[in-house]
Design a protein around this nucleic acid. Structure first.
Lengths: 336, 336
DNA sequence: CTCTCCCTTCGAAGCGCTTCGCGAAGCGCT
DNA sequence: AGCGCTTCGCGAAGCGCTTCGAAGGGAGAG
């Protein structure tokens, strides 16, 4: 920067003001400075800027878990956030979630980032408390139970379960099982799982049909067993809503039981993606604008960092039900 | 840090030396300093450290494309790299690939990162040239044609195609099609696509069978048409190797042609993942330790940043063929 | 023609940390 | 006792940038 100043015949501070635009600079000077910058192929040194200004122009995104088995939807959040961050001339710091929630705040305390994006939220989340205590800006992908004053973007799983259930009810199903997120997530208080459960109960009651909540199946592994048990003990259950890969286990169980999809049993997935149409039968399910969601989260955080304390922005994003082959009319007579 | 020094009754520089261990400090002083750090809950300011030391302790990872439609294997690279970076007390900067390869170097020039991880490599890659010219440390996931002096981790797609072809040949297939990566990637010189093509030709020649190279199918969209055309014009072709989602289009075409998998036609995917076993029929294919690969890439870069100029490390990682339902003996008589 | 005031520009003081060189002290020797 | 040597703590000079206060000059007003 000193070289720029010398070459342009101006003071160091003038160069800085040309770059930042925080004070007006005459057209004359500005041109000389810009020419010098061009000639010398100068790039401002970010850490120095961060040190002097106190802002790193960086946001941090914490991944759900160290052993990251991200579902595609979460991977797409990351992609969207990356895109928006680059577009906003910010940098995106990607981290695994530390065991100790306290460490979340360190990234800001140490000046690595100005704000944080969190995902995979719990209804009562220690990370949020820490960030609030520290007064650091953050945006959630997902949400806590009490969202007072909190910025978040969330996929509306409650509505998704409702929509799925209504779809199945319209097809004549009167007893539907929900293969919810795995037990450990439910027990930990994973908000989406709680909302899915609540939506099942409420909507089933409204529609006057039966909803069976099955919280336990771990993806694939246990799902087959749980599904087999369901088919055995609940013969009137003719459809299921799944939240993830469990439909794979469900399909196995149905095959073993000699039930055809959708003639004998219908399936709707609340998180469908590209693979949904590759399966046989292709999967009826909710599709989500996850890339958008990730993008919005990053944009909201960047705005917040710039804006001071505007009112909190809370976005609930709806998915779209795409009807494919796995859902159909309830069987006229139950043959089990 | 000044507060720490004061509280511990030592000089600022002593605190620094306690923290960095770059000079010996008496046990007495060290204890006092560490106690003060504990008491004041002090966190070193990273940008300041970066400014003073000239190293940001950060590595940058560039995603393949802005519109990131990462295949699962690539997402897993990112996860692995994130894990290793966090473990090495480094930070991981995630960026979309800029249109201008020159911009890749900016992240280092501006002091945001000390080194770079690149993925989705071309045989002749402008990004690598720029980084070499600038003298910045980098590691590739994938590789260029000339890898002299370059650190990389790559999945061995050549070997994977060979293994797949041998598997099919052993099952009696004498004419196998390769649905390679999309045309635009092949034309751009995407190394994996070139290696897959070469491996097909070489191995087919060795085995004395026929290999048909089909470079064009865009994932899913065109794949059905290309596959239908193949089935029509090449009746002796009884198996295919796919590199991605195209098997979905292939399946459609086979269904339309009334061909059963694997009785009438076999499929092997060189990039199989969890979804491979969820499909009906489940997919025979190569599984890759992608998480490991990402982890290794990050570790190699961190080592390089620490180590100076050790000899380049070049890792070619093999996949494992998992035989499932989609591959079987060649039909005794071709019925088309 | 002088007095303000504003528009530009400059200089200098940090931001929080690393690192170099110096000096003080302690050691084993002669 | 005096020597050189090592060990360890201190002070100060940056790293490259931002930002504040003030100085200089021109224009408009009195």
């Amino acid at each position: 920067m000193a070289q720029i100043a010398e070459r342009a015949g101006v003071a160091l501070s003038t160069v800085s003001y040309v770059l930042s635009g925080k004070r007006s600079v005459s057209e004359e000077m500005r041109k000389r400075v810009l020419a010098a910058i061009e000639d010398l192929d100068y790039r401002p040194h970010r850490p120095a800027r961060a040190l002097a200004s106190g802002a790193s122009h960086t946001i941090a995104l914490f991944l759900p878990s160290p052993q990251w088995r991200l579902v595609p939807v979460q991977q797409t959040f990351v992609a969207g956030a990356t895109e928006a961050t680059s577009a906003g001339d910010f940098a995106l710091l990607l981290s695994t979630s530390p065991a100790d929630p306290e460490e979340i705040t360190h990234v800001v305390a140490r000046g690595r980032a100005d704000g944080v994006i969190l995902m995979e939220m719990l209804a009562h989340d220690a990370r949020v408390e820490r960030l609030q205590q520290a007064g650091y800006p953050f945006v959630l992908i997902g949400r806590t139970e009490d969202t007072t004053g909190i910025d978040f973007v969330d996929l509306d799983f409650g509505a998704a379960v409702r929509t799925s259930l209504v779809h199945l009810a319209e097809l004549g199903h009167t007893c539907v099982a929900l293969f919810n997120f795995p037990c450990d997530q439910l027990d930990a208080g994973y908000t989406s799982a709680l909302l899915a459960r609540d939506a099942l109960e409420e909507t089933a009651a409204e529609l006057g049909i039966r909803g069976i909540h099955l919280p336990c199946p771990h993806p694939v592994d246990e799902a087959t067993a749980v599904a087999a048990e369901l088919l055995r003990t609940e013969p009137e259950c003719t459809a299921a809503i799944t939240t993830g890969w469990q439909f794979s286990g469900l399909l196995s169980a149905l095959r073993d039981a000699g039930l055809h999809v959708p003639d004998g049993f219908s399936i709707v997935s609340v998180i469908a993606s590209q693979y949904a149409e590759m399966l046989t039968p292709s999967l009826t399910g909710i599709e989500w604008p996850a890339f958008e969601a990730g993008r919005l989260a990053a944009e909201m955080l960047i705005e917040r960092l710039a804006g001071g304390h505007a009112p909190p922005r809370q976005l609930l994003i709806g998915g779209e039900l795409v009807v494919r082959e796995s859902s159909g009319p309830a069987p006229a007579a139950i043959t089990r």
